[in-house]
C-alpha cells in the first residue's frame, strides 16, 4: 500500500507513453550494450575472421583459445587478483572511512567543525591528478613504486564520499537515539559502530561500490606506478596485450572482455542499488 502511494506521488510525466519513446529508449540500450557485444564477437572468433570484410557479426567458438592465449601471454590471473585486491581494499576502506568522517561532521560537536567541513568541500574542486609527477616522487621516496599500496592508500578517503555520508547520516540517524546511547555510557566509537553505521550501511555500500568500480577501471595512476608484469592490474594487462609481439587484434579484445566480466557479474547483482544510489546522491531541485 505504501509502495503504491509512493509510486503515485513520485514526480514524472503521467501522460500515456507514446510508442516511439520505447523505440528511442531501445535504441539507446542497444548503443549502450553493443560495444560489449562486439568485444565478445571479436574475442570469440579466430584472428583471421577479425581481418575479414564484411566483418563477422555473430560470436564464434574461439573464446577459449584466445582466453588461453591471454593467460599465456601475460600473467592475467595475477592481474585480475591484483585488481580485485586494490578494488576491494578501496571499496571497503573508502566506505568505512568516509562514513566515520561523515559521522563526525554530522553528529559530533567539536571546535572548528564547520571550517574543517568547508575545507573538505573546497578540496573537491582541486584537480590533483595534474600533480602526477610529484605524486610519483613521493611514492618513490616511500619505496612504494611497483606496489599495490601505492594504488590503495590514496584512494581510501575522498571529499565526495565524506560529503555524501554526512548528508545520509544527518538525515537518517536521529539525535534522540544518539543521546540515549550517550546516557547509557556509550562513547562515540561505540555509537558509530553500533548505531550510526548500521543505519547508513546501504549508503556506505553504494559509496564503496562506486569506489570499487573506479578503482577496478583506473588506468593513469596504475600505469605510472606499476612496473613489473606480476604487479599489473587487469587494465594495465590490457595495454600489455595490445603491445605484445603477437599481432592479434582478438587478443586485446579477449583481455578486455575478461577484465569486464567481473564487473558485469557484480552489476547483475547490485546494479539496481548502484542506479538508485547515483540518483539519490544527485542533488534534487
Amino acid at each position: 500500500m505504501t509502495g503504491l502511494i509512493l509510486r503515485l506521488r513520485r514526480g514524472g510525466r503521467i501522460d500515456r507513453v507514446p510508442w516511439w519513446v520505447y523505440v528511442l529508449l531501445t535504441l539507446a540500450v542497444v548503443i549502450a550494450v553493443f560495444p560489449l557485444y562486439w568485444m565478445f564477437v571479436v574475442a570469440s572468433n579466430d584472428s583471421a575472421t577479425a581481418y575479414k570484410m564484411p566483418p563477422r557479426i555473430v560470436p564464434g567458438g574461439n573464446l577459449l583459445h584466445l582466453t588461453e592465449l591471454v593467460f599465456s601471454t601475460v600473467p592475467f590471473v595475477r592481474s585480475l587478483i591484483n585488481s580485485a585486491v586494490v578494488a576491494v581494499a578501496i571499496g571497503v576502506g573508502h566506505g568505512v572511512l568516509c562514513a566515520l568522517a561523515g559521522f563526525a561532521f554530522a553528529k559530533l560537536r567539536f571546535p572548528g567543525r564547520n571550517t574543517l567541513f568547508l575545507i573538505v568541500v573546497l578540496t573537491m574542486t582541486v584537480p590533483t591528478q595534474l600533480a602526477v609527477i610529484p605524486q610519483y616522487m613521493i611514492m618513490s621516496k616511500l619505496g612504494w613504486v611497483d606496489t599495490l599500496q601505492a594504488l590503495i592508500v590514496p584512494g581510501l578517503a575522498s571529499a565526495f564520499g565524506i560529503f555524501w555520508m554526512r548528508q545520509h547520516i544527518a538525515s537518517t540517524v536521529s539525535d534522540e537515539l544518539l543521546q540515549a546511547a550517550r546516557i547509557d555510557g556509550a562513547n562515540s566509537w561505540q555509537i558509530f559502530w553500533q548505531i550510526a553505521f548500521p543505519l547508513v550501511r546501504p549508503a556506505a555500500f553504494v559509496l564503496g561500490l562506486l569506489g570499487f568500480v573506479t578503482a577496478w577501471n583506473d588506468f593513469l595512476w596504475p600505469f605510472i606506478i606499476l612496473k613489473s608484469p606480476e604487479m599489473y592490474t587487469a587494465q594495465i594487462a590490457i595495454k600489455a596485450l595490445q603491445n605484445s609481439y603477437v599481432v592479434d587484434l582478438g587478443l586485446a579484445m579477449a583481455g578486455s572482455f575478461l577484465a569486464t566480466i567481473p564487473m558485469l557479474i557484480l552489476f547483475a547483482f547490485v546494479g539496481r542499488r548502484l542506479v538508485s544510489g547515483i540518483m539519490d546522491g544527485a542533488f534534487k531541485g
Binding site: V21, L25, M263
Partner: peptide, 27 residues
Amino acid sequence: LLNHTRLRFATLFRMSMLVPYITSVAA
C-alpha cells in the same frame, strides 16, 4: 524520455544506461 511514471521496463532501461560506466576506459 525516461521520466514517465507509466514507463514499462523502467528499471531495465535505467540499468542499461550504466553499463558503459562500469566498463573500463581501457576496454
